[in-house]
Amino acid sequence: MSADKSLKDKPPKDHLNQMLVEGNNDVHAIGALLAEHDIKWSKTKWMPYIKDMGSDEELVQGIPVAVNASYKRLAFVIDADISCSNRWSQIKKKLESEGIQVSSSPDPNGTVIERIVGKKTNESVYGLCRTTQRWGCWNHFCRCL
């Protein structure tokens, strides 16, 4: 597995499927993990463009804008090493401010929300990885996405 392998055939920047991550390291790590799970770029399959949002705070702050952007599928990958429940409540608050209802606690496998707006279906995948300290956790997480 290598970052080069995953990024070589990445989707275009304006792809309708986007995954927002905290930083540049996550772009490479998650790209590599998706490649490892054979989730490859093709025009028809769920392989997102992975976007570096700068930091965890910037990513969380930008959730209200991101969910209203013109994407078909949108994913957030947000680290919650320190306090999973606090992090989730932050995200929940942001989503609810845009009229998106989510469960009171995150699904360990990742939370998937489908929004049907008019004739379009927008599916949002809100992933919250509970810990990156345990071996294999990231692998499991990406497989669930």
């Binding site: 976007k51 991101a66 952007a69």
Partner: peptide, 22 residues
């Protein structure tokens, strides 16, 4: 196909452009 416009305030526009959100 929607019933209302999706609104971006000035600061949200700046964020979206800064982060290259479409």
């Amino acid at each position: 196909f929607q019933t209302h416009s999706t609104v971006f305030h000035g600061h949200e526009l700046s964020y979206a452009i800064d982060k290259e959100l479409e």
